[in-house]
Every structure is written in C-alpha cells, then in structure tokens.
Design a protein around this nucleic acid. Structure first.
Lengths: 207, 207
DNA sequence: TTATAATACGAGCAATCGCTCATATTTCAA
DNA sequence: TTGAAATATGAGCGATTGCTCGTATTATAA
C-alpha cells in the first residue's frame, strides 16, 4: 500500500463507503483502460461512478492516489497470476515461457494495466511498478542460476522488463503481427537475450 | 515534410521570418529536451524564443505542427547519421553494431529526440517515427538476408525498434547500468533476437 | 513616395483541469 | 431519542492550456 492513497483523507469506516471506494476504483480502472490515465479527469470518474466529486475526494487525496490504489491491486493480482504459476517450472526457459503466457492472460483480465504500465509518465508510479516486477524476475533468474553474479541477475531483469514494455506499447498499434505472433516474438526476444546474457557470463544455459 | 506543418499558415517569405521559424524550432527543441513535449506550452516556447505568441502561430497552425517540423528534421539528420555509416558494413551484425553506436552519438547531439521518441503519445507523430525507422531496418535486414521472407524482415525490424524504445525509456531513470553498459546490453539484445529470428527461419547467420 | 503585402504583437477567450468547502444528509452508539 | 461523527453533495475557484484576432509595425515593389 503506497503512502499517497492512505494519507490525509478519511479512511472509510462504514460498509457503504468501503463499497463506494471499491466502486470508484473499478470505474476508474474501466475508464483508464478505455481512454488512458491522462485523458480521464476526476470529474469524469465521479460522473461515471455516479458519485459526487466531493465524495471522491473524501477518500482519495488526489487523482494520483486513485492510480496508486489501482496499481497496488494490479501488482498483487499480478504476483498471484504470474509468480504462482512458475513455482514448479523445470528451468528458467520454462519459467519465462510461463510468465509470458501469464502476462497474456493478465492483460485480458486487467485491461487497464497495459495502459498504466506502458503509457503513464508519473515517475513514482512507473518506478514502483518497474522495481516490483524487476524484483520478481531478478529473484527468478538467481533462483535458477545462483552462480550468476547478483548484479548480472538484476541487469537481466531490468533489460527483460524494458523489452516487455517496448513490446506492450506496440500492442495496440497497427503492425505486421497478430497478437499471438507478438507474444511469440516477445518470448523469443526474452529467451534469446537471457541466453546471451548467460553465455557472456560463462554459463552454459540448460546445463 | 508532414501536412500539418505547411497547411493553413503563411509560409515565411522574407529572410527574417525564415530565421524566426528556425529560431522557434531550435528553442522548442531545447525546451522539449529539458522538460518534455507535454510540459512545454506554446506560450513558454514563444517567451523563451523572445517572440510573441501571435508570431509563433503565424507560421505554425498548432502546437503539434512545431513537433512535426522538428521530427522532420530529426529523421533527416538521423538517416544521415545512422544509414550513412552502415553502407560498407561487412555483415548484418556489423551493421547493427554500427547503428547502435550511431544512435548513441545521435542521442547526445539531438537531446530532444529521446524524449520525443520515447515519451510523446501523439499517435500521428509516433507512427511516423516508427514507420520511418522500421523501413530503414527492414531494408537493412533484407539487404543482408534476401532469402528471408519480406514479412519476417518487417517483423524483425518492428520488434527491434520496440526493444530500442523500451531501453530508451529506461535511459534517464536510475538503474543498475552505466550508460555504456546500457548500450552494450541493447546491442546484445538486438543481436540475440535477430540471430534467433534467422535461426527460426532456417537461416544460419553469418554463413 | 506610397500602397499593399508581410510580419509582429499580446490581451484575452473559451475550455479544461484538479480540487475545496460550506452545507445537507445519513449512520449509529449512547 | 439524540447528538456527534461519518458520509454526501456540487457550485465554483484559481490556474493553465492552446489559440484568435484586432491592431501596430515593417518591408518591398511600383
């Protein structure tokens, strides 16, 4: 839970207001998915959620706090969806393949996340998402290749996430690939890069 | 030259106004480099260029037209800087290495381009930059590997540009890599992906 | 010299934004 | 029942934005 979302505003104490907070968040998420964060005003959110603008600001100190709260939820859901299914992976290659598949599913169940991940420019939000996911990938690489230097694990994770982000921004634009092909190419790019990283550090992958 | 930048406004006919147009563009470029496109208002540009807001709008129909004109210039400069130095490359791998080096230099001489390339969300601008560069890379791949299907060349170019874009967005954020390391990793990621693409299409790279 | 086109100017419009605050209503423990 | 706390409301503030338009100045060709 980030600081912004819990400071300076009344915490919902009654059941009705807790429901309202969740309803506002769900509405905001849907609007962000359709129009993007910047294009959606707090008044739009309030109107779409059939809540007065004053009520919205009773629980969220500012617009960014709504996004922060959503990102909390997205990251929690994502950890379950991605990390839950790689625990019994046979190899790093297998884990990466499963992660890409998991991302594909997560993108359809959390339509706003792609926008938030790929388009939002707010540094605090961007860094939080980035650092969280990099941490997961970092640990994952180190788990399968403990002989790889910690710093190289971290670099591998950061570069991998950059590749994912670059491809995600491309997802909604007209391009030569079908969605399935795009995921295939993403997986290929990640596997090829990680393979190369291991080789450059004197490790024979899969051995 | 894009449509927006030349339509609906008086074309500069006197020398002084041609200089003014160039001066406005240079000032805008510097401001975009420092604060990003969205954060810079047309009034800021006019004030910084010591030109009235009315004069600015005599030659540029709207804010995006300033960016369009700059992108024209960036892409022309980039073609010279990148494509000029790969003509005598011995192999695709060599050409990619030279392109990455060229990008590195271009980034220091055109500080605003990275912002425009990585942060601007205007679809028309984004598409134009993307399609132009993809065209270059597409031709480059096809030049060294004519036996590779045209569509695969295009996919390779698009994915490569995605990787570059993802890494560029990462450039200014705090991360585990020095700038030199980042360029090294970018080159490694591109080479690894292209190598993999060729293999998947039954081509033995370098043979 | 003079008339016309080109250029220069900047106050200010209309729209939008995030957000406040005075006030009204509802909830619930005492 | 009652009163204080919690919740709900929305008009509207202050700031900013991209941009227009009436007017003043300058350049150039006749």
């Amino acid at each position: 839970m980030s600081d912004t979302s819990i400071s300076k505003r009344r915490q919902p104490k009654q059941a009705r207001s807790q429901q309202r907070v969740e309803h506002i968040m769900a509405t905001a998420s849907a609007l962000f998915a359709e129009h993007g964060y910047e294009a959606v005003s707090t008044n739009h959110i309030a109107k779409a959620a059939e809540v007065s603008i004053g009520s919205l600001y009773q629980f969220f100190p500012n617009k960014e706090a709504i996004l922060d709260a959503l990102v909390d939820k997205y990251l929690a859901d994502m950890q379950k969806a991605l990390m839950g299914r790689i625990e019994d992976a046979a190899s790093l290659e297998d884990a990466i393949q499963r992660m890409v598949q998991g991302m594909q599913r997560f993108g359809t169940s959390h339509k706003a996340f792609k926008h938030v991940f790929a388009e939002v420019q707010l540094i605090a939000v961007t860094n939080r998402i980035h650092d969280t996911i990099v941490g997961w990938v970092d640990d994952m690489i180190g788990n399968y290749y403990p002989q790889l230097a910690k710093k190289q694990c971290h670099i591998g994770a950061e570069v991998s996430l950059c590749i994912v982000k670059g491809m995600m921004q491309f997802y909604d634009r007209p391009n030569a690939m079908s969605p399935e092909q795009l995921w295939t190419e993403l997986q290929a790019a990640l596997l090829a890069y990680i393979h190369d990283l291991l080789c450059r550090n004197g490790i024979t992958p899969g051995a």
